[in-house]
Design a protein around this nucleic acid. Structure first.
Lengths: 260, 260
DNA sequence: CGGCCAGTTGAAGCGTGTCAACCGTAGTGG
DNA sequence: CCACTACGGTTGACACGCTTCAACTGGCCG
């Protein structure tokens, strides 16, 4: 049982994107007891159908949640970065309706439901903040529903890339217009409801249109404006507070972007 | 400001599907002050992008939630029946990331966020119950994501029909294998991410295969087993407590359930 | 009566899926 | 050092599920 003082800092930062915390709340969160774990890429963290007793906070690396079909297909529900707290829903529900896998090597803090629950009872503002996290989670799923149900392949991909950019930015991973895209095209396919082959084609299409540059596992966005337009991306659903509506994208920086 | 004693009963029943309440909690919920409203079919209840200060409980009738695309398309996120509490997410988030419309004429109870919030602070078990409702909501979206992303038209429809059947059953609307399908095929299309034309074809296919009988706005399920298979439906995601796994479908009724 | 809305059906086109190669890189073991 | 394998990415040809367009029906209501 660790209680490493600053290791839970990514969690605090994440929560403060959507909620305001007092000093005491911050301290309480940071000093939550947790079990530390390291996961290799592809490792299963939560099994669909299991009854976990701990929440899982990503300290570093990437993870994703998914649901399986009887026929062996897989829908990736969301990708997650450092600071994200997963399985918050299991705090109040017993069986996990979806699984969680590490996407890259990842450091994980496991926090027991009872500890978290106790903290919620002690601090109304933390309870509110966690509730809010869960609701934002839900909002992201709603946006994904719109994405899968109403947009074509090209738009779906663009939208997903926009979301990844914003979330990685807010987690302060990478910087600016160029960032790591740690997932394989198969992951992207499972997240967008497309086939690997078609994801590949659409990615290249975005490349050859000059919207993004994609080499190796790095993605560079040449025109946020066009990527947003193509994806129909409106960051409101992320509920990250006031975001300037236009032109620039990841909540912060982004110098000179050619807008053609 | 009504405080009509039994009018909020559908809400209590709904909540008790997933949580256990004490007598005092039940009473507290039932005596929540609310503003009564009647909506005609198609009437907008919550506008996407607005900042509501009240939650909306359906006392009778049907409603649905949706998100719109810049291009004018619409994705229906979920359908709702009597007892469902909508916009619970706005309790902790400020702007509504989706809209709500009445599907049929409906009776609505509007409960102010502050009243609800106050009640949550007074009763931990009610707070838990509402939190749980929100999480189940989220779980349903996840299931829809799997549906839209991984299944073909026929399966999507079958899955949606299964879900509607279970939820209407749990709300004690209609009975047995035959029930009202109050939505138009356009609604079904917007919910499944298909076109009206194709929904029509798939519905007829299900009919001519003998799985369902569909005349007017009534749907009769001839074989739950086949409908479940086609839709890949597993009711676990509804988190409605232990559900017998086989053969029969709508969760409850049938007074003689062994070991229930 | 006329008009509108939901449903129904057919024919044609296109967006994705499927199948099947092939490439480059990294890892592994002889 | 070289086979050998495994995996992610890339590309082409073809098949098919779904969309699109368009026409027609029946019911409801002003």
């Amino acid at each position: 049982m660790h209680s490493g003082l600053l290791r839970l800092q990514p969690l605090v930062r994440k929560i403060e994107l959507a909620s305001t915390l007092g000093d005491d709340d911050r301290d309480a969160l940071r000093s939550l007891p947790f079990r530390y774990g390291h996961a290799v890429a592809g490792q299963q963290l939560v099994r669909e159908g299991s009854q976990p007793t701990e929440c899982c906070v990503i300290l570093s690396g990437y993870a994703f949640r998914y649901k399986g079909t009887f026929g062996g297909k897989r829908q990736i529900l969301s990708f997650h970065v450092a600071g994200d707290i997963l399985d918050l829903q299991q705090l109040k529900l017993s069986v996990a309706d979806h699984g969680v896998d590490a996407l890259t090597p990842a450091d994980i803090a496991w926090i027991s439901h009872s500890d978290l629950d106790r903290l919620c009872r002690r601090s109304q503002s933390i309870a509110d903040a966690l509730w809010r996290e869960a609701l934002i989670d839900s909002s992201i799923f709603r946006a994904q529903l719109l994405n899968l149900g109403q947009r074509d392949a090209r738009s779906r991909l663009a939208h997903l890339l926009c979301e990844l950019a914003v979330r990685r930015e807010s987690a302060q991973v990478g910087d600016g217009d160029e960032f790591d895209l740690p997932m394989t095209q198969e992951h992207l396919a499972d997240a967008t409801g497309l086939t690997v082959v078609h994801v590949n084609r659409m990615l290249r299409a975005l490349s050859s249109d000059g919207v993004v540059t994609h080499e190796g596992r790095t993605l560079k966005v040449n025109s946020w404006k066009r990527l947003r337009e193509i994806g129909g991306f409106d960051p409101a659903y992320l509920h990250m507070g006031p975001v300037e509506p236009v032109d620039r994208m990841p909540a912060s920086n982004c110098g000179t972007s050619p807008s053609g």
